[in-house]
């Protein structure tokens, strides 16, 4: 299959996933649509380097997260980037020990606000948790060890809980 056909098929299959990642960061001086195009350009440039060492799914997240974070770092506005996850995706954050299922609109908005205040790295990690990636997959995207991913996510959740103080039902 030609590179162009490969690219078109890959983008068609993953456009929603890519767009969601772009929406998390699309507030730092660049729109989500523009970020989406940058991600596509970087997918095109890196496509020939995909060797199948990781799953295509993880690979797409790598390119999307790297592109968005690079833009945030270059524009020096990364602390003002915004995470705007949907209530459904936020439910992936729910954890029996830390969070109950987030159903109420008010709770969702408050948690979303707190996530927006996280550091850029914490935001990247939590956005991947919201996307439903496993610890191993997050480790492959970010490039740190699985225990380090677990430690960081646990710390972020603890921080969110302390600020958010979700009451268990």
């Amino acid at each position: 299959m030609k590179k162009e056909d490969n690219f078109t098929q890959l983008v068609k299959e993953n456009s929603e996933r890519i767009m969601r990642i772009c929406c998390y960061y699309g507030n730092g001086g660049i729109s989500a649509d523009d970020l989406y195009q940058e991600v596509l350009i970087n997918i095109w440039k890196s496509l020939s380097k995909f060797r199948g060492d990781s799953s295509l799914y993880t690979w797409i997240y790598r390119v999307a997260v790297n592109t968005c974070l690079t833009h945030a770092v270059k524009s020096n506005k990364y602390y003002s980037t915004k995470v705007t996850p949907s209530p459904l995706l936020l439910n992936n954050l729910a954890d029996n020990e830390l969070f109950d299922k987030i159903e109420e609109e008010e709770r969702y908005e408050k948690l979303s606000e707190e996530i927006n205040l996280l550091s850029v790295i914490d935001k990247a990690l939590i956005s991947l948790v919201i996307e439903g990636l496993s610890t191993r997959e997050i480790s492959e995207v970010i490039g740190i060890t699985e225990p380090n991913v677990r430690t960081k996510i646990s710390r972020i959740k603890t921080e969110l809980r302390s600020k958010f103080k979700i009451e268990k039902k």
Binding site: S46, W59, N66, T70, A124
Partner: peptide, 16 residues
């Protein structure tokens, strides 16, 4: 010419 955006974030940042 190109930064490789398909590498893990930490590797990409170190190269950058």
């Amino acid at each position: 010419r190109y930064a490789d955006y398909s590498e893990p974030l930490l590797v990409m940042l170190k190269k950058a």
